[in-house]
Computed example of a mutant assay.
Amino acid sequence: MKHATFPSLFSALALLVAPVLLAQSGPMPPPPLMQFVREEVKPGHGAAHAATESAWTRALVKGKATDHYIGMSSLTGPSEAWFLMGYANYADWEAKQHEVEQNPALKKEVEAISQKDGEHLTGVRTFLGTYRKDLSYGPPVEIGKMRYLRTRVFRVKPGQNKAFEEGVKVALAAYEKSQLPGSFAFYEVSAGMGSPSFVALRPLKSLKEIDALDAADKAVAEALGEEGRKTMQKVFSETVNDVENQIFAFNPKLSFPAPGLVASDPGFWTPKPEKKEPEK
């Protein structure tokens, strides 16, 4: 449950695999409810921050916690660590918020680690999102085999969310027609950010997939046609305030992965401890 149990320190925590699927590997649908945590890491504190996060994971394993999450580090933009955690519904999310509270020994250890973690951060923001299947694209993916996540945060003008959604659906039709490679999941922010806002998540096995996406732009444009392109430009210019594009790398040192996730690629998600240099 990471930061979620300590509102005085950080407020709530983040997601990626619905509880009913925790024991499974293979392709899985996106969870119905997602919580995101954005930690702003102080410049030069990346390694120290990763060390406290690893200590956090060890404490959760020892305490037999079940609130698993994926952590990732920013490759673009400001120095950030994002944490993603998935839930079946709000009742499931609520239940997980109490998990550490019901384990006094784990609570004490996590509180101590959270204080150390705070020394490496300049700020934290959390928000919840609900999965929008009608705005998403492509088949389920095996997230444990992915290495990167491309995120796009759309901040939509007040009262324009329905028009924005219609614009996304026009784009989806062009993606289908042109057979755009890959998949992405769309989440509508329900709390923690100015509304209406949406987050699109595209998992990637390799960054070279972005080259393929760039090359596919021509096929998408052809599928839209001249009128479709004009409609898309008009819709998004009239409905969107701004778009934030980021690329992140999944980081096992920042993660508390579920068994199914680990089973997809044990070598990546359970790295061997680094050897300490002998003292001279």
Rank of each mutant, 00 (worst) to 15 (best):
K2W: 01
A4F: 05
A4P: 08
P7H: 00
S11G: 10
A12V: 03
L13N: 01
L16A: 06
V17R: 03
V20A: 11
V20S: 13
L21T: 11
Q24C: 06
G26K: 02
G26V: 01
M28S: 07
P30H: 01
P31T: 05
Q35Y: 09
F36W: 09
E40L: 05
V41A: 09
G44L: 05
G44K: 04
G44V: 10
H45Q: 14
S54N: 13
T57W: 05
K62G: 09
K64F: 13
A65I: 02
T66Y: 03
M72Q: 01
L75G: 08
L75T: 10
G77W: 04
S79T: 08
S79K: 08
F83R: 00
F83V: 01
L84D: 00
D92S: 04
W93I: 09
A95G: 07
K96F: 08
Q97W: 12
E99I: 11
P104S: 04
A105K: 15
A105P: 14
E109S: 13
V110R: 02
Q115R: 09
Q115H: 14
K116S: 11
K116T: 11
D117S: 10
G118W: 10
E119Q: 15
Y137V: 03
K145W: 06
M146Q: 06
L149G: 04
R150I: 03
R150K: 08
T151W: 00
T151C: 00
T151R: 00
V153F: 02
G159Y: 00
G159E: 02
N161K: 05
V168A: 02
A171M: 06
K177A: 11
S178H: 03
L180D: 02
F184Y: 06
A185F: 00
Y187C: 03
E188K: 10
S190M: 07
M193H: 11
S195M: 10
V199E: 09
L201P: 01
L204H: 05
S206P: 14
A212D: 15
A216P: 12
D217S: 15
A221K: 12
G225V: 11
E226G: 15
E227I: 04
Q233G: 15
Q233D: 15
K234R: 15
E238P: 07
V243M: 06
V243Y: 09
Q246M: 08
F248D: 02
P252L: 04
P252C: 08
P257D: 13
S264W: 04
P266R: 14
G267F: 05
W269L: 11
P271Q: 11
P271F: 14
E277G: 06
P278N: 12
P278R: 13
